[in-house]
């Protein structure tokens, strides 16, 4: 029973060690600031609560979109578009499909692995990986919530460009 409870508790912290490091570092910094610079700690906490109040509902809505995507993506149909016969078009199709997948690798990578297993070419799969999450609701909503539409547009255009260049490099080199 105890290991089960521990597992459930650990689930609350996600699977990514980078996220764990962020959580530990945040707690550590606040603890040190509470002793060394309590005014900075209080101001930061107040700022955070203000941000949380304004963003909590849209964040939950975006997470509900992310949760639904997992069950709405038809892997077999996508593999048909990304087979060996697609040639260089697989790069563009892969980036376009990948861009609509969730930014979280623990959601998008199993979908991409499913498409690979269903018969997609390596170029198509790599293009999907390069494009994964570029224009997904979570990332675009974060662009809009934390910055503005101009930043969202510039970020998406440049990252699409990077993903296509990376896909073309794979196509011509491998």
């Amino acid at each position: 029973m105890v290991p089960m409870k521990l597992e459930t508790a650990l689930e609350l912290f996600g699977k990514n060690p980078f996220v764990h490091a962020l959580i530990i570092a945040t707690v550590f910094v606040y603890l040190i600031l509470l002793i060394a610079k309590p005014t900075v700690a209080k101001k930061s906490a107040k700022d955070s609560i203000r941000t949380l109040k304004s963003l909590m509902i849209p964040i939950i809505a975006a997470l509900f979109i992310a949760g639904a995507i997992k069950f709405l993506v038809p892997s077999k149909m996508l593999a048909g578009f990304l087979g060996e016969q697609a040639g260089i078009a697989a790069v563009f199709i892969g980036v376009a499909i990948g861009s609509l997948l969730p930014a979280c690798p623990f959601i998008s990578f199993p979908i991409i692995a499913g498409v690979y297993a269903a018969g997609a070419s390596l170029v198509g799969v790599m293009a999907m990986l390069f494009g994964s999450g570029l224009a997904f609701a979570c990332r675009v909503t974060c662009d809009l919530m934390f910055f503005n539409p101009k930043v969202a547009g510039a970020r998406m255009t440049l990252s699409f460009f990077v993903a296509v260049v990376a896909g073309l490099l794979v196509y011509f080199i491998i």
């Binding site: 689930e11 606040y30 700022d47 992310a66 639904a68």
Partner: peptide, 28 residues
């Protein structure tokens, strides 16, 4: 979809909380 979404919210609640607190402290 709803079950998967609840699991997403549960899994990401603490990381999001930590990130918002980290963002404010980084700024200050």
């Amino acid at each position: 979809c709803v079950a998967a979404s609840f699991s997403e919210v549960k899994k990401l609640f603490i990381p999001i909380l930590a990130a918002i607190f980290a963002g404010s402290v980084a700024k200050n």
